[in-house]
Write a protein that binds this DNA or RNA. Structure first.
Lengths: 230, 230
DNA sequence: TTGCAATTCAAACAAATGTTTGATACAAAC
DNA sequence: GTTTGTATCAAACATTTGTTTGAATTGCAA
């Protein structure tokens, strides 16, 4: 009765309504309190299911956690794919813009993302096997995609370290809206970080990054005048 | 016997050897596992003191947590003050470099910092009253200091938002070495992030940021040629 | 020494946690 | 109607948690 969790029948009443409700509630609660601090009772209480349902449907708290992360990620990527709203033959700068914007939207606190961004953040701070899962199933290819854009922006320079540095700096500017949300809320509580805000923020990150990359690329192609000020 | 914690005598044997050992061990253990996941038994076990010592000397786990954070912060700032190794009449670029370098060193994983960087990171992800304490007692003035440097680099422009954007981008590039340590360890386990590495990294952050700021400042002062590429 | 307060210690306590259990309800198949 | 497998439920279980307790020990002053 427990091993059946793996190969479930899909003829359940309403396609596993209870299971789905647990999954979505779990993603939100885990994102709010973290793995250790959320209790199975919290999840079942909010999902309005019996306490034993978690172990019946998922085999335990830890399995539920991993499934909830996958579920939230699927949902967030459905809403905001990697190149969200990007035309086919766009230039590298537009590609970068689309990358930044879709990243911010995908990891934003919008409840419809089921706390995906926060779950990633928490996993980075307190890594479990779920972090390796995430690296394998998305993060790595995402980073390589960004590195490709950066490489093109740098003029296809063969300096791998320079590409790495710029990639990292861009990623960091996106991630800070995940990690310092608490500080920002305290310093400027009026900010809501709705899609309009995120649009402006992605423009700011793009501006800062493009200026930096162009400055670096200029040095790279040896144009001593017009490159740096001093 | 418990309210005496506030007004302790300093004539304890060895100036409160037990108390100090608890404090330092607690900072490290809290930084390793976070507040919720560390148990008083872990701390007492590693500090080789009796279980009841925490409640006797600090009144409880939560009070110990706050004291441990203060202790770690004091230690880290003693080792790396804000303008660590900066000459008196240094220009803004040198000031920025010193700011970045001392920040990286102060929040690095060096055990002598007692896990200060990780404690800050965890507090940002799971805010408690200790985050407000940290904001009041250091973080805010630190941010203002950086904003001052950025303002000067931008040519004392009166655009407050632009200063904010650049400040935030610089901070984010420093913070990413706190937040994505786990990912970096998985992608490049050979990196040790010793002081030499951090020296190189601070140079990279400085390079990227200076190029960006100069590019932005150039636009600001209306030099249409020689400013941006397109 | 004697007295006294501070400290240390082993043991225990109440509360909360993840998990298990056995009974029950339900729906479809035979 | 009976059977069978799935799902739900209240109750209980074994651990672990932070904290408390009361006795023992220590260090120093009178």
């Amino acid at each position: 009765m427990l091993n059946e969790v793996i190969s479930r029948k899909v003829t359940d009443h309403e396609l596993g309504e209870t299971r789905k409700r647990i999954l979505e509630t779990a993603a939100l609660v885990f994102s709010e309190h973290g793995f250790a601090a959320t209790t199975v009772r919290m999840i079942c209480g909010r999902a309005k299911v019996n306490l034993a349902a978690v172990n019946y449907h998922f085999g335990g708290k830890e399995s539920l956690y991993r499934e909830a992360i996958r579920h939230a990620r699927r949902r967030a990527y459905e809403r905001f794919p990697v190149n969200f709203g990007l035309s086919e033959n766009a230039g590298p700068e537009e590609q970068l813009h689309a990358f930044i914007r879709s990243f911010l939207l995908r990891t934003s606190g919008d409840e419809r993302n089921l706390g995906f961004g926060t779950l990633v953040m928490r996993e980075m701070v307190d890594p479990t096997s779920a972090l390796d899962m995430m690296l394998d199933e998305g993060i790595l290819t995402l980073l390589e995609q960004l590195a490709g854009i950066v490489r093109e922006l740098l003029g296809n320079a063969h300096d791998r370290e320079l590409v790495l540095i710029c990639t990292r700096s861009i990623v960091s500017q996106c991630l800070i809206f995940l990690f310092s949300r608490s500080v920002m809320d305290r310093l400027a509580p009026e900010h809501k970080f709705d899609p309009d805000d995120l649009e402006g923020i992605s423009n700011q990150i793009l501006l800062f990054s493009m200026k930096a990359i162009r400055g670096i690329a200029a040095d790279l192609h040896k144009q001593p005048d017009c490159a740096g000020v001093h």
